[in-house]
Amino acid sequence: MTPIMSALPFCVAAWLFAIGLYGIVTSRNYIHLVGCLGVCQSATYVLLLAVGYRWDSVAPIFYDHPPGTPAVDPVVQALVLTDIVVGATLTALLLVMAIQVQKRRGTLDPEELAPMKEQQAADACKGRVAEPQR
């Protein structure tokens, strides 16, 4: 096992995190941003599973193999499992926020949603026509 090969899974995790972060920084759309966040999160799955892996080990389920067989780390698998479920619900929550932003402001571009621009839009709106109270 060359040193490069043994560092490869961790480099994959770092790369996934980096491209996810790049996507978040350059994002022009909230839906795209939520997707990039998912890529960042995948990096944690790769990292956790790589930390807990060991060659010639079985899954940490001792049904077919007797207890005592070398097995991979069950702790990181439990972490990834709960991570995926919570990640899915949080993605749903973020997408709901995107829906509400689209409803209120009519755009999903973070550039257009800067707080100052909201103020300008509100001022322009007030000057032109009194908006009916909801």
């Binding site: 096992m1 490869l8 940490p60 069950p74």
Partner: peptide, 18 residues
């Protein structure tokens, strides 16, 4: 290194868990 050893906590759980 990848695949050489696993954290001690998981190792312990694998040993005594069942």
């Amino acid at each position: 290194g990848f695949g050489s050893e696993i954290p001690a906590y998981g190792e312990l759980i694998n040993r005594i868990g069942p």
